[in-house]
Write a protein that binds this DNA or RNA. Structure first.
Lengths: 211, 211
DNA sequence: TAGATTGTTAATCGATTAACAATC
DNA sequence: TAGATTGTTAATCGATTAACAATC
């Protein structure tokens, strides 16, 4: 009997919106929130909310609902957002800048510690608190930085696979890939493809469907 | 007998990467590409590629593969990317700016025609070729602009639902929602939630799984 | 207590994968 | 021709939804 893979990607995708809602409720001094209430606000079914919470090991009290404080700490633990993760960002274009300056990520345990680019005009310039590093120095600086995550926001002309292979060799554990290029890595490295055009394709299909 | 809903969201999500690959192959004077080749490059199974193409009405030739020129025009038609779509963008922060300046969206039929913000310091300033408009003028300017899509890149403190309801009332057909707030709209309006933290949650889960 | 809500098992639905005939 | 590849039907797998007992 083999161990189940237990993907539940859709469940993980929904978790941040549950967390956000629980934080709002908690800030409003609401101690409990029911699955029905959450479902109504997020446009989901209450069954799905309860099932998701069950998968995350979150329990509630019949007739009262879920304790907002428990939801917040429970979801953060479930997503490992209670553990700090060091990240480097490569490709400081407009999108890279937006992500680097999005200080809310800190709340999710994501700490961006360095920015890299290959453009001589950008290297040395400041973005927020960071001075942009030369990508040719990546290998040299990696061991001091010790990042577990690399955020790739390069232009699509770059050789993203070569860069990804180097990062894997250096010991990166996760790659948040905003480029259009798909990358192939070993089984011990996680890759999430966040190319914005995928979402736009789904939106277009949905618009067509609804006329 | 009711008509099938025919969601196939995962198929639509994969389409842009097929298109990108076909464009690259075509640019390299490669007239045909096989499903096996595409699968290898994208890290998918060839069965899935063939199934996706079948759903999109794309046909190939046994032993040769799919004509790259046909893939390009076929996928663009399937995604309605051959039809121009006018869009307004609301919330000109770092992410909004990055999307407004990302000129590649033009190739997908997305034409951003106006930017709005509520920050007095930003209104009137230029971003690329656009002068930022006052959000209070949205209703007044809408009928001249005639957008079908609204891109929401506001900060999460804003009342996104109120804004979305106004947009729907004015006749918007699709909302590309980058905020953390989920929005509820009628059945004739498409919403795609593109909150970046969902993807980060999946990446964290996958990293944990792979240790 | 009565009734609302949780938690879980079973049923359904949709997407992926397997198998294989058709074909250039 | 032989073999690689397409296209499709059937089987499997996983996620969603339904049903309902447990419970505060």
């Amino acid at each position: 009997m083999s161990v189940s893979k237990l993907e539940c990607t859709p469940t993980y995708e929904r978790m941040p919106s549950y967390l956000h809602l629980a934080e709002e409720a908690f800030a409003n001094k609401q101690n409990y929130i029911s699955g029905t209430e959450i479902a109504d606000i997020l446009g989901l079914s209450s069954i799905q909310v309860r099932k998701d919470f069950s998968l995350a090991g979150l329990t509630g009290i019949p007739k009262r609902g879920y304790k907002t404080a428990d939801l917040i700490s429970g979801i953060r633990t479930f997503l490992t957002w209670d553990i700090g993760k060091r990240a480097i960002l490569i490709g400081v274009g407009n999108l890279g800048k937006a992500i680097a300056l999005h200080d809310e990520f800190k709340n999710y345990g994501l700490e961006i510690i360095a920015l890299f680019d290959n453009n001589k005009k950008k290297i040395g310039k400041k973005v927020g608190q960071f001075k942009i590093d030369d990508i040719s120095q990546l290998q040299k600086k990696f061991s001091k930085l010790r990042p577990s995550i690399a955020i790739l926001t390069l232009s699509y002309q770059a050789d993203v696979q070569e860069l990804a292979s180097l990062l894997v060799e250096l010991g990166i554990q996760g790659i948040w890939n905003f480029t259009k290029k798909k990358i192939i890595v070993g089984n011990d490295v996680a890759v999430y493809n966040a190319d914005l055009t995928s979402g736009f394709a789904v939106l277009c299909a949905d618009m067509q469907r609804r006329q």
